[in-house]
Design a protein around this nucleic acid. Structure first.
Lengths: 205, 205
DNA sequence: TAGATTGTTAATCGATTAACAATC
DNA sequence: TAGATTGTTAATCGATTAACAATC
């Protein structure tokens, strides 16, 4: 199996391309070009072609790309041509919003479990999920084989939760708590903190 | 006024540095070094020093940086040494979670208004906010002079809302709807879509 | 003083863009 | 055929790192 090295910055753009392609599909479009896609995304056409060329040849000279075919191919590359179960830790406002979020559908992801440590919340429902006791986190995650988790706890708990998740076999963490996590380097971590995005813009105001 | 050009990628790291410094402050730490900061963040010490050197000299040879002083300086650079009012558009799960989010405190930002178009929601409360009619969005935003907005509407409405916000004078948009917005280039846009982050990790699983 | 760490320069590394032959 | 657009190469551009004099 030839494991060609692909820069992470390229991997990071593929989900953006995929989202735009699925948007075009929902507009019943059939074909697009690197130029059109680039204009929609504010990315140069050359860069899109270069990125895609890392994985194969998906277009036709003169006509461009079949939107459906390219979306399928990118989905396969990103391994979202299946559905990944995810665990949510923390059933506060953010955790609840994630658990109910409709936007995972058709994008290869779904919430499967929600955990909290509050006795008042454990056993109650969020959408179709019964909130489980965080004490059972390790066992439930190991049993299910879930590899992806989202942390939506207070900052103070996040590092400890992350360590528990890693022990349970989690390989990818999306952290909503506004702190940097320190985990084994073979575990992938991404961060969502609205303040980081907002402060990046206040500089320019 | 000397307007030196600073790469956007550097601006993008400043909020990360600031968050880490504030974390250290809350641990009652007084002094840090580029090396320690780098280790916490997974960024090289050289890069941190290079980034900071774009704005001035904040450290002392031999001893490092006063955490409080450096945090203050970065706060000034990012213009979060004041409090910016923000508008939230869309009072569903995500909009509600944003409106109630405690994490804006002491980071230069606060929610000031929440809008929705659902007659059932208009007039009711989220936290301390009364949900306002989206029909009044333009007028209320213009009156208040708010420059920052967050979009938490369904995808189909997001582009239209963005245009209305720009007309009302908004200069920075944080978009939670999973679509790319097309707006005047002098308006700053940032995106939060958990699926983008998650798909970036599924590639490696 | 000796040790530590900054700010900065120069070298290296990597990413983006321009350009074009190939070809649908 | 003429026009359009790909995939790819080489050139350009920009970001990161290594190294070290300055100095606390």
């Amino acid at each position: 199996m030839e494991e060609k090295f692909i820069p992470d910055i390229v991997i990071g753009r593929l989900p953006i391309y995929l989202r735009a392609l699925q948007g075009m599909l929902s507009e019943n479009r059939r074909v697009t070009s690197s130029q059109e896609l680039g204009e929609r995304l504010g990315i140069s056409a050359a860069q899109i072609r270069k990125d895609l060329s890392q994985f194969g040849e998906f277009g036709k000279q003169g006509t461009g790309y079949s939107i459906e075919f390219l979306a399928d191919q990118i989905g396969k590359i990103l391994k979202v041509d299946r559905v990944w179960d995810m665990a949510v830790v923390g059933a506060g406002d953010i955790g609840s919003a994630i658990a109910r979020y409709q936007g995972f559908a058709n994008r290869g992801l779904q919430v499967a479990m929600v955990f909290d440590n509050d006795p008042e919340k454990i056993g109650s429902q969020i959408g179709s999920f019964v909130i489980e006791d965080i004490k059972d986190l390790k066992q439930k995650i190991q049993e299910s084989g879930i590899l992806i988790a989202m942390i939506a706890t207070p900052s103070l708990a996040a590092q400890e939760v992350a360590e528990e998740l890693v022990t349970a076999g989690i390989k990818a963490i999306l952290n909503y708590a506004p702190i940097n996590l320190s985990v084994n380097e073979h575990v992938h971590v991404q961060y969502i903190d609205p303040v980081i995005h907002l402060q990046r813009m206040t500089y320019y105001l």
